[in-house]
């Protein structure tokens, strides 16, 4: 694995490999001293052109638990304010000697562009509406850990909400279906992409009809900051039609789990008390996120060196 740009680059074998290595890092995270020296001497830069709490902190925690050095870049306090271009910014940072760049940007495709410019490994931490591969990996891992089936094969996953603006939905659909799950998108027509051609999913506009048949309900955040046009009459109407209220949560089968990529709008896509039910695994998604990102960083920076030295012994 040279870069991690899209779930599609990994394929089934790649996802399985990340899952297997993640098991080892979950154990590391549970130790009283959750730190290993595996990436000593490596430098990892977070290049975030968009706001983020959990993804940036999750990558930073992962890097530190692997003993890598981390550098943080945020647009608001950088020379981008003075008009420096993305390319110049990236090349400047690379000139300092780095091993990996974690990129988040509001435009789709930026991580690919960055990967063309630098020798360092590039990880896509979210590009516009396009992809967020590490989120999909941690979601797959969480389902495997928390759902009694212990596998995604044959599970039915409903992804509910603002699919149109969601990179999480795009990466999750790819990953879940690669691992053999059935996916149903549940959203008002205005919050679905204009074309779903080629998406291996079903679509429903009736959440009450879908919930009794699902193993996982995955709620997306209403992305108010990306909604430039009036796609909904009001958030209250969205909640009334598509929100996971306590009443709707009661329709779920006994072993179904509730997921959300965060940050949650309690009272909009998910009722406050539903987010705290035992079947809600939202905080476990965050915990698993650190271990999954440790696995990704380890696989990219340590497991397969570019040049294999011939050592005896």
């Amino acid at each position: 694995m040279r870069h991690l740009l899209s779930v599609a680059d990994l394929g089934v074998d790649g996802i399985e490999e990340v899952m297997r290595v993640t098991d080892s890092f979950v154990e590391v995270s549970e130790r009283s001293i959750p730190k290993v020296p595996a990436l000593r001497g490596k430098t990892i830069v977070s290049l975030f052109y968009e706001d983020s709490t959990r993804t940036r902190l999750s990558f930073e925690t992962a890097a530190k638990r692997l003993s890598a050095d981390t550098m943080n870049f945020s647009v608001s306090s950088s020379s981008v304010k003075k008009g420096e271009s993305l390319r110049d910014t990236v090349l400047t940072i690379e000139a300092m000697g780095i091993d990996a760049v974690v990129v988040r940007h509001a435009s789709a495709g930026v991580p690919w562009q960055v990967a063309n410019w630098v020798d360092a490994a590039v990880i896509n931490a979210g590009d516009g509406w396009h992809e967020h591969p590490t989120q999909a990996l941690l979601d797959c891992y969480t389902i495997r850990k928390e759902h009694p089936a212990r596998s995604l094969a044959g599970l039915h996953v409903a992804i509910v909400g603002d699919v149109k603006h969601s990179r999480v939905a795009r990466s999750d659909v790819l990953a879940f279906t690669l691992l053999g799950a059935r996916v149903t998108l549940v959203a008002p027509p205005t919050l679905l992409p204009p074309s779903l051609e080629g998406w291996p999913v079903k679509v429903s506009h009736d959440i009450g009809g879908v919930l009794p048949d699902v193993d996982v309900v995955y709620l997306l955040r209403m992305q108010k900051e990306r909604q430039t046009e009036a796609l909904l009459p009001s958030l209250r109407e969205y909640t009334a039609m598509y929100g996971l209220t306590r009443r709707r949560a009661a329709l779920l089968p006994d072993d179904a789990i509730v997921m959300h990529p965060g940050p949650m709008n309690r009272g909009v896509e998910i009722a406050a008390e539903v987010a705290d039910l035992p079947r809600s695994v939202i905080t476990r998604q965050v915990a698993n996120g650190v271990a999954v990102r440790m696995a990704v960083l380890f696989l990219m920076l340590a497991a397969n060196p570019k040049e294999v030295a011939v050592l005896d012994g």
Partner: peptide, 22 residues
Amino acid sequence: LDVVFYRDDIGIRPVMPEAVTE
């Protein structure tokens, strides 16, 4: 115990975790 994360040849040759430490 899987010592993989403590090996001194990480980055020099292929290393992969074998099993979860218990």
